[in-house]
């Protein structure tokens, strides 16, 4: 299959790649760029484990063809902590016990970060609905919501 030239900007680094048009952004991030923090849970856009941020928006990377992401700013879970300092959302997931097996956690953290960046002042109910595209099988969501609300509060206070 003919390959296409794609320029991916991932966590600030540029990657010039030749890739088949059938490859998803998820596959390229994991198999070509080597960033395996983004997870594959369903490959149909239903579980949210592969959520990354593309130009400020949370997207399920299994539903995006990599060729369409060329030239866009992509942030993955690996790009969230800066200078050894965890992002408030990451720290909140630790403090509240918002993860167990951790497989859905990168997706949840990225989806939560995008929501908080957009508007941290949401009610628990609003966050519950906004995160309805991410599946967690371990926690029952109670502690995830605690984490997201705590992180939102912190971001809101420092904004």
């Amino acid at each position: 299959m003919a390959k296409h030239h794609v320029n991916l900007k991932v966590n600030g680094d540029e990657h010039d790649l030749l890739i088949e048009p059938r490859k998803t952004l998820l596959a390229v991030l994991r198999d070509t760029v080597g960033l395996t923090g983004t997870k594959e849970g369903c490959s149909t856009g239903d579980c949210g484990a592969c959520t990354v941020i593309v130009d400020g928006k949370a997207v399920t990377s299994c539903m995006v063809l990599a060729v369409t992401a060329s030239g866009k700013e992509i942030t993955t879970i690996e790009g969230l902590a800066s200078d050894g300092e965890l992002h408030p959302v990451q720290q909140a997931f630790i403090n509240t016990g918002g993860y167990q097996c951790g497989f859905c956690t990168p997706g949840f953290i990225m989806a939560s970060k995008a929501l908080i960046d957009e508007n941290p002042d949401r009610s628990e109910e609003e966050f519950r609905h906004a995160l309805g595209g991410n599946i967690c099988r371990c926690t029952g969501y109670t502690k995830i919501l605690e984490a997201v609300l705590k992180a939102a509060e912190e971001v809101s206070a420092t904004a």
Partner: peptide, 12 residues
């Protein structure tokens, strides 16, 4: 830390 930074190595 490894679970919230994507560093944990799962099977895949």
């Amino acid at each position: 830390v490894e679970k919230v930074t994507g560093a944990a190595q799962y099977g895949a």
